[in-house]
């Protein structure tokens, strides 16, 4: 062994070092690009204090507006989840490469990729143009994102199943539908329920936002309150939204425990 390697057992990892320096340089560069200066920070803190000051106490008067918006958000989330879950089953099955012929899976995968690649807000914008302002546009946007999420993971779950059980069912002479029901579904049901409940939570979160672009629900009310500087009402809405999301998580947790 050479004396040099004995003295320095830690050869410099040049790629890692270069990467760290590049990351640091980038951070400084990007921060300067956004004019992240000390004075701006201080002004921001000052604004933040005023902002918080105007937020408190939360406004407790406009119950009507809050109720209408929140209930519409919940309705959007529920309908979109039901439709999304139901539609995800066939799409996911068609996308599973171990069950379907190649060309079918490519079509289904293309559909899933299309549903996935746009943020629900952008999809909502397009549906607002197509079906007008209101809850329908929000529902359709969330259905699209539900299919993108559930069908993709469902297809992946199906591709991971043990084919031995499927073979065993097929060997009994069962038809294709029976093979699905007895050989495939039991193996993936628990995971499907997991994806579905996760997406229900996600839909609930997004249903409070699609209103910003005209998709119905509390989002419109929230955005208007921001634009009118009604920060005390903003706080009321935010607290309600967070409470709703937490209740939603409790319910979906209960659902998961009941069915898995």
């Amino acid at each position: 062994m050479s004396a040099a390697s004995r003295r320095n057992p830690f050869p410099v990892n040049w790629p890692a070092r270069v990467a760290w320096v590049a990351l640091a340089a980038y951070t400084v560069y990007a921060a300067s690009l956004f004019q992240l200066t000390w004075t701006r920070f201080l002004t921001g803190i000052d604004n933040g204090a005023k902002f918080l000051d105007r937020m408190f106490p939360p406004l407790l008067g406009k119950w009507d507006l809050l109720w209408v918006g929140m209930s519409e958000s919940v309705e959007i989330a529920l309908i979109a989840s039901a439709l999304g879950v139901v539609l995800s089953v066939p799409v996911g099955l068609l996308a599973a490469r171990n069950l379907m012929p190649g060309w079918v899976t490519w079509l289904a995968r293309g559909l899933i990729a299309l549903c996935r690649s746009f943020h629900p807000m952008i999809v909502a914008i397009l549906f607002v143009k197509s079906v007008g302002f209101g809850a329908l546009a929000g529902i359709m946007a969330l259905v699209v994102s539900s299919i993108g999420f559930i069908a993709k993971l469902f297809a992946e779950a199906i591709e991971e199943i043990s084919l031995k059980q499927v073979e065993a069912v097929r060997a009994t002479g069962a038809g294709f539908a029976n093979v699905l029901i007895m050989g495939v579904i039991p193996q993936v049901l628990a995971r499907f329920i997991g994806f579905a409940t996760y997406q229900i939570d996600s839909n609930l979160r997004n249903s409070t936002m699609v209103g910003i672009v005209g998709g119905g629900g509390i989002g419109a009310t929230l955005f208007t309150a921001f634009q009118r500087f009604d920060y005390d009402f903003v706080l009321t809405i935010l607290i309600t939204i967070i409470a709703l999301i937490m209740v939603g998580e409790i319910v979906s947790g209960w659902m998961r425990r009941t069915f898995q």
Binding site: E75, A82, G134, G216
Partner: peptide
């Protein structure tokens, strides 16, 4: 749970504001 889910869904479908004309108009708009 089924009862709860179906009831919630039904209630939502009844009260949500969907204008059927808009839906009919959709292909044209797209």
């Amino acid at each position: 749970f089924y009862l709860f889910a179906v009831a919630a869904l039904m209630q939502s479908l009844r009260s949500v504001e969907i204008i059927p004309e808009f839906l009919e108009d959709m292909p044209e708009q797209v």
